[in-house]
């Protein structure tokens, strides 16, 4: 039994990991773009981004997930997500990417604005272009500032992946829960918790490592 539970949970972990990884992959750059959007001098764009962030942060992720998964089918008459597991994971990644991009954008914005204006000005008087200033001067200082709040968000993301169960994506929590439903077993639930703990533990080590790597400057 232990072996079959383990196998099942590993299967769920794979889905959880896919949601996690792809969400990060899309939400990080999208978050940066939204951060720039929320700081632009072009007012309509700035307001648009601010409203988007307000809506996304102001409503439950679970609700967003349900709307994104079922909405297209109801409005368009046909489901844009294929009915299989891959379709569910894709829909989850889309909903999560939008949601997390909004949270990330606020963190990025804080990180960028936290870099003193004098840094940008020093770059300007040295004849650097805007993009050179961003990539060579601001970026790393911003990264250093955003690592702690980002690690918080990213650890939350690990656990939020369990929301995908609501659209029947077979992720880790779903896998653990199914044994309770079918066999009345509770220990797989605790076993599932161990999987999350290990996942988060590895991430914590990774973030500590990154923080230490960025310790060489202030």
């Amino acid at each position: 039994m232990f072996w079959s539970v383990t196998q099942s949970l590993l299967g769920g972990l794979l889905t959880t990991f896919q949601i996690f990884l792809f969400t990060l992959l899309f939400a990080l750059p999208l978050g940066l773009i939204l951060a720039f959007g929320s700081m632009t001098r072009f007012k309509p764009l700035r307001c648009l981004v601010q409203v988007l962030v307000w809506i996304i942060r102001g409503t439950p992720l679970m609700l967003q997930l349900i709307i994104i998964f079922y909405g297209p089918g109801l409005w368009l008459g046909h489901n844009i997500w294929s009915g299989n597991e891959a379709g569910r994971i894709t829909a989850t990644v889309v909903a999560f990417s939008i949601n997390y991009a909004c949270y990330f954008s606020v963190i990025f914005r804080g990180g960028i604005e936290g870099v003193p204006a004098g840094q940008r000005e020093a770059g300007q008087v040295l004849g650097m272009t805007k993009s050179q200033i961003f990539f060579k001067v601001t970026l790393l200082q911003m990264v250093k500032r955003v690592v702690p709040p980002m690690s918080n968000e990213i650890i939350t993301l690990v656990k939020d992946t369990s929301l995908a169960r609501i659209i029947a994506a077979y992720e880790l929590t779903f896998a653990g829960y199914s044994f309770m439903k079918s066999n009345g077993l509770t220990w797989p639930l605790f076993y599932t918790g161990v999987f999350y703990l290990l996942f988060v533990g590895i991430l914590t080590l990774l973030f500590n490592h990154i923080e230490r790597r960025l310790d060489y400057f202030r």
Binding site: P116, G118, Q119, E121, A122, Q124, V125, G127, M128, T129, V137, L140, Q141, K144, Y216, F217, R218
Partner: peptide
């Protein structure tokens, strides 16, 4: 950018790049 290069600037608060 080219015009700027005619001038150099030393700031009161140094503004060195910390990294």
């Amino acid at each position: 950018r080219t015009k700027r290069l005619h001038f150099g600037m030393v700031f009161q608060s140094f503004n060195l790049f910390p990294q």
